[in-house]
Structure formats: structure tokens, C-alpha cells
Design a protein around this nucleic acid. Sequence first.
DNA 1: GTCTATAGGCTGATAGAC
DNA 2: GTCTATCAGCCTATAGAC
Lengths: 220, 220
Amino acid sequence: MGPAAQFSTKDRILGAAEELFALHGFAGTSLRQVTSKADVNIAAVNYHFGSKENLVNEVFRRRMDVMSALRLSQLERALSAHPGQLRPILAAFVEPALAMALDRNGGGAFVRVIARAYAEKNDSLRRFLSDHYGHVLRDFGRAMAACLPDLDKETLYWRLDFLAGALTYAMADFGVIKRPQGVSEAQHRAQAAAELIRFAEAGFHAGGGRPTASPDPSEA
Amino acid sequence: MGPAAQFSTKDRILGAAEELFALHGFAGTSLRQVTSKADVNIAAVNYHFGSKENLVNEVFRRRMDVMSALRLSQLERALSAHPGQLRPILAAFVEPALAMALDRNGGGAFVRVIARAYAEKNDSLRRFLSDHYGHVLRDFGRAMAACLPDLDKETLYWRLDFLAGALTYAMADFGVIKRPQGVSEAQHRAQAAAELIRFAEAGFHAGGGRPTASPDPSEA
DNA sequence: GTCTATAGGCTGATAGAC
DNA sequence: GTCTATCAGCCTATAGAC
């Protein structure tokens, strides 16, 4: 397990799967592509993971555990160092995703895998995410609510969803913004994170009253 | 083509494909599933669409043309009725997506198909979307820039991406917000749209200076 | 743990009768 | 336009040698 240790067959499979899942989706990636890219035998994936579905879950867990831990520890530091301030809480949510996106060791693919997972209405994967990482979102919700005592809970949770959606799409590099020449990938993502924190900070501080629901446009 | 006309084979294929694409993604949906759900022969899809890839494009075009037209006409009305105001422009972007989501005739699946399209790094589909509908986003960018003369263009485009991400995510019903009992699907979505407009309005109006890029968290 | 070989099934697409 | 029949290729998963 030293720093110079070879990547194990299992880790090579995970890394290859992550990259391919990001590129082609879960259904769009075959185990043959994975094992070929990882330079292992086709039978190895079933030996180590049992099934393709289980491989998907393991690809997820490996990075998501890291990102969730980063978020929670940064949240804790934000709450003790800057009590009552929203921006450090937002940063604690956004910046770990940025860190994953910038991770040299293949983490960049992971943020796109997250976006995939959201799109998958896949029951088992979504339950897996909710069961294992739902508490992180709840912790952030509580911390934000303490900063915004006048905001009703429902509006707060809507805004958390908006933040998560915007973050997912920004980090996965969907959207119209193209990275200009001369700007590194890292700078570009860091810019996205900083822009998003500022955008969301203003958004969360928007007036707390319930908005009047728009008239149903399909009736017009 | 009267109102009581039967759905054609072609339309039945499009409708079935749309629902299945929303549920299982493009790669995850087989043409056999499509033709089985549409109750047409397996050969019909190749007769009417030529290939699976072309079917994907046509599923998109059918609704996207409608949504883009709704957005542009509502934008035009916003600009003439409320010149210089940002909120009606935001509404013109958000509410047509809501209208699609609420459309009785299967449009609800379409907003999830959009989310799929974002997640699929699918080159040909992305080019198709950019070529055919990129001008809509550019029109909105111009209209918003006129409302926010102090905002540099790059920040504006970041925020448009955040808006698009949050909208997609909200309309596709990802996220933590669960619809309470006694609230109809339509009310729930309308609430999402109204909340998002308010959130985004505050976000777009956030101070215009370039934010300091956060230090790279992966170095910490 | 890693390999070869293969089972058994599904895929997109097409040829050709009607 | 719609059907049946079929192609060639790919898929996941497993059995069994080493």
C-alpha cells in the first residue's frame, strides 16, 4: 500500500470504469470496454465485483465517500470559524466538488459520473445515494437554516436543490461556457466554483416570502 | 389531421421512445422496447427514422421546437412590455420549460429527456442541439446583458449556465424536495418555477466584480 | 487470482414477401 | 407501409483449467 505500489487489478477496473462511465454512461459502457481499458481479463470484473450493477455502485462509493467527508469537515470548520455566515457554508458545499473535479487521479471523470447518476431514474442507485449520503445534505440544510432564520424551510430546500443542480452541471462542464485558450482546466473550474458561490449567496439571501405561483402556462 | 385523428405509427414511436429515453436513457433503451411499447413492428423504426441516432434527434426536435418558440415569443413580449426588467426575461426562460413539464400529452417525460441529453456526452446530439437551438440561448444572453450593463459577459454566461442547470434539475424532479400530499404535480412544478425565478433574479443581480478565484482545495 | 472458452441472449439493421 | 425472418455482432455471466 506504499506510494509506489502498483495499482491493483481492482483499482484499475474502478478507474477505467469511472472514465468510461463518464464518457458513455452506465448503459453505454460495456464491461469489455472496461476490462480492455484496464488491461485486465474480462472475467476479472465478475470475480472482483460480481456484477456490472455492483461495479457501478463501487465506482460511486469510492469517490463519494471522499467528497462527503471533505464537505462535512469543511462545514464544521466554517461553522466554528465563521458562525452565522452563509458564504463559508456554501463554499463548504461547492469547493469539495471542485476539488474532486481537479483531482489528478481521475476524479475529473467522477463529477460527470455524478451527473449521470442524477439522470438515471435508476431506483437502486438513487436509493443507495439517498441512504448513504442524504445526511450530508441534511447537515447543510440545518447549517443554512441557522444563517437564514427568516427563510421558510421549504424555500430553503428548493434553493439547496437549485444549488446542487447548478453545481452538478457546472462541474460536469455542460452548458455554453467554453474554456478560453490560455486558461487552464483548473483555473476554469475554480472560476466556476467562485462564480457559483457568489451567485448562490445572493440567491439564498433573496426575500423570504412565498412567491405567488405563476399561472399555469399550459392553460394560456 | 383532425383532432380525432389516430396517432400515426410515427407519432406512436416518438411518444414511446420519449418515455423510455426518459426512464432508461438513450443507450439504455433498445429499439425493441420502443416498438413493443408503441405496438408497432420492429422494422417500422428503421423505415420511418432510418437509424436509432436519428430517432433520438427527432424525439428532441418535436418538443424542443415548441419550447424554443415559446421561449422566444415570451421573451419578445417581456422585452416590449417590461423593458429593462430582468425578472420577465427569467420567466420567459423558465416558464416554457414548466409548460412542457406540465403538458398533458407526454411532455413531462421530455424534461427528463433533456436532463439525459445534458448527461450524455453524446457528441452528435450535442452538436445537433447547439446548431439548432444555440441562438435561443444567445438571444437570452443579449436581453439579459441589456438589463445588467455592469455585469461582464463572462459572469453573465456563467450565471446562465447555473440557471439552466438548476432549471433542468428542478424540472426533471431530481433533488431532495418531495412533493407533499395534497399538492398536485402541477402546483409542485409551478412552485419550483416561481422559486427558481426569484432565486435566479437575486443571483443575477449579485455584485458584478470578478470574484477572487478560490485557492485550489486539492492543494490544501 | 487470472486465464480461455463459451453459453445464451439481446442488439441494430436489412432483405424481401405482401 | 407493414410484416416475418434473419444476419452478424455484441452483451453479461459463468464454468473450469491453471
